[in-house]
């Protein structure tokens, strides 16, 4: 009985009093917005970087590819070699110091961070596709990029779907450091409410539960996609 009383009291304190639920709603919205856009942009960046690296390996004499590959190598080295929080703060306080759009800067920083990891996943996926697939595409007169887009990438994506799912889950959780820029995301909202209610248990468990539900939803989505894409596996 006592526990139930505690719960009702904390529910009131955490969500109702001073309209604190609005803080959580804003945090939830920001977390989702940053995670979704960073994921999408991260895939685009990762795809470009991966294709540059793969093509450079195929055509090491191409000068343009050589330059692009050099940039790509520096990019992945720096991103993978430094903490995401530092990248985030560098982006906000140094690179985009003139901007006060913390959410936007956060999206950009997380995108570039994620892109470096995604590029390695995609590169591995492309390399795992049999070389004969490219040769078959090219021998039919398809261009290099058309072959990549229509023949190689669909097969690569099918194979790397589980790894991509992991990466998306990681981004979703990593966005919790956006509070460093003063953005109210889910974690920051929880932290703010905690400092006001002086009770860590209830609101932090709540925040954790929301992340967990989001991650479970994401995993379910990827399971479904895997199942759909495996239709050509039926033997």
């Amino acid at each position: 009985m006592e526990f139930i009383n505690y719960l009702t009291e904390m529910f009131e304190k955490t969500f109702i009093r001073d309209d604190r639920y609005k803080l959580f709603l804003e945090g939830f919205k920001n977390t989702l917005v940053i995670a979704v856009f960073a994921t999408l942009l991260g895939v685009v960046i990762g795809l470009i970087v991966a294709v540059v690296k793969v093509w450079y390996k195929q055509y090491p004499k191409n000068v343009l590819l050589k330059i692009l590959n050099f940039i790509a190598e520096i990019y992945t080295t720096i991103i993978r070699g430094t903490p995401v929080v530092v990248q985030l703060m560098l982006s906000y306080f140094v690179i985009f110091a003139a901007s006060d759009k913390a959410v936007l800067v956060g999206i950009i920083a997380f995108s570039f961070n994620s892109g470096a990891y995604v590029s390695e996943i995609i590169r591995a996926g492309i390399n795992a596709v049999d070389k004969g697939q490219t040769e078959a595409g090219r021998s039919l007169g398809l261009s290099q990029s058309r072959t990549m887009i229509s023949i190689v990438l669909p097969q690569a994506f099918k194979n790397i779907l589980p790894a991509l799912g992991n990466e998306f889950i990681a981004i979703l959780k990593e966005t919790s450091v956006i509070g460093y820029l003063g953005v109210v995301d889910l974690t920051k909202a929880g932290e703010m409410v905690r400092s006001r209610t002086a009770d860590a248990f209830f609101c932090l468990i709540f925040v954790a539960a929301v992340y967990l539900v989001l991650v479970l939803g994401l995993s379910a989505l990827f399971k479904k996609m895997e199942k759909r894409m495996s239709k050509s596996d039926r033997g």
């Binding site: 049999d130 004969g132 697939q133 078959a136 595409g137 090219r138 021998s139 007169g141 097969q155 050509s232």
Partner: peptide, 18 residues
């Protein structure tokens, strides 16, 4: 690419698009 359209090729390992 234009010329390859006129040269069909058949591979040892078929290389159909799975």
């Amino acid at each position: 690419n234009k010329l390859r359209q006129q040269m069909g090729m058949v591979f040892q390992h078929f290389n159909l698009f799975p």
